Simulated scan of single mutants.
Amino acid sequence: MMTKVLLVDDDRELGEMLTEYLDQEGFAATAVQDGETGVRAALSGAYAIVVLDVMMPGCNGIEALRRIRAQDRRLPVLMLTARGDDVDRIVGLELGADDYVPKPCTPRELVARIRAILRRTQVQEPDGASCGPLTAGALTLWPERRSLEWQGQPLELTSTEFNLLEVLVRNAGRVVSKQELSQQALGRPLARYDRGIDVHLSSIRHKLGLDAEGRSPIQTVRGLGYQLVRE
């Protein structure tokens, strides 16, 4: 079956063009022109990923994302943002967007980002690989189930947050550069001035909280990257 993509953008002409291109690339794309309809469609369970424009009248992309994430933390959401608009971009990431593409963008770039996100969210364990959990201190993560527990309790993360934490768990005790994190968790090279990794990790830290000594299990190593402390 073809992967279903929901495109939410009030620009009807752009929506038709992107839908046609996505269909040619093997996706089953549906375009809607307003945030209210987009939220309902996204929460229907019919789509593998949502492409959501920030600038829409009425229920804009930020509000639509907020409402989607209130009910579904795992559905991948790719934001379309105005080029150079860092505020909307950071707010979107803080609310749980998986990634963003600045507009105007080429259909080819959009498809590449969609595929990169889906590769990570629909990852399959290679033949012969262990299906057991990964552990690091009080953290237990099941890659094949895309679920995790922190201090014995289930923890809800977005798909990209899960990807980032999985990379850190697999490298527990070692510093992982932002370039490595971007390649392995987002499926793309780290762009210059890209703060997406930092925003996602800040959200993960907030959800994990602090240990008994007031420290986060994810440490920043200035100038090098991030490290998950192996307890």
Rank of each mutant, 00 (worst) to 15 (best):
A42Q: 14
A42G: 12
L43V: 15
S44C: 12
A46Q: 15
Y47T: 12
I49H: 13
V51M: 00
L52R: 06
D53P: 02
D53M: 14
D53L: 14
V54C: 09
V54A: 10
V54M: 03
V54R: 01
M55V: 08
M55T: 04
M56P: 00
M56T: 03
M56K: 11
G58L: 03
G58K: 08
G58T: 13
G58Y: 06
C59N: 09
C59H: 07
N60E: 11
I62V: 14
I62M: 13
I62Y: 08
E63Y: 15
E63F: 14
E63G: 02
A64H: 08
L65G: 04
R66Y: 15
R67Y: 02
R67F: 00
R67A: 13
R69N: 11
A70H: 14
A70Y: 07
A70K: 15
Q71K: 15
Q71Y: 09
R74L: 13
R74S: 14
R74N: 06
R74A: 15
R74Y: 03
R74P: 00
L75P: 08
V77I: 14
V77H: 14
L78I: 06
M79C: 10
A82Q: 05
R83T: 01
R83E: 15
R83P: 12
D85W: 00
D85N: 13
D85T: 13
D85F: 03
D85G: 07
D86E: 13
D88I: 00
R89E: 12
I90L: 14
I90Q: 09
I90H: 04
G92Y: 02
G92H: 07
L93F: 06
L93V: 01
E94Y: 05
E94M: 05
E94R: 11
E94V: 00
E94P: 10
L95T: 01
G96Y: 01
D98W: 00
D99G: 05
Y100E: 10
V101S: 01
V101M: 06
P102T: 06
P102V: 00
P102S: 04
P102H: 00
P102D: 06
P102E: 05
K103A: 08
C105A: 15
C105Y: 09
P107M: 04
P107K: 05
R108H: 07
R108I: 02
E109P: 12
E109D: 11
L110C: 04
V111I: 04
V111H: 03
V111N: 13
A112S: 07
A112I: 06
R113I: 01
R113T: 01
R113C: 03
I114H: 05
R115I: 03
A116C: 06
I117M: 11
L118G: 00
L118R: 06
R119H: 08
R119K: 10
R120Y: 00
R120Q: 12
R120N: 13
R120F: 01
T121A: 11
Q122M: 12
Q124C: 07
E125H: 02
E125M: 14
E125V: 12
P126D: 07
P126Q: 03
A129K: 09
S130M: 03
P133H: 05
P133Q: 01
P133T: 04
P133K: 04
P133V: 10
L134H: 11
L134G: 11
L134T: 01
L134K: 08
T135A: 14
A136C: 15
A138T: 08
A138G: 11
L139N: 03
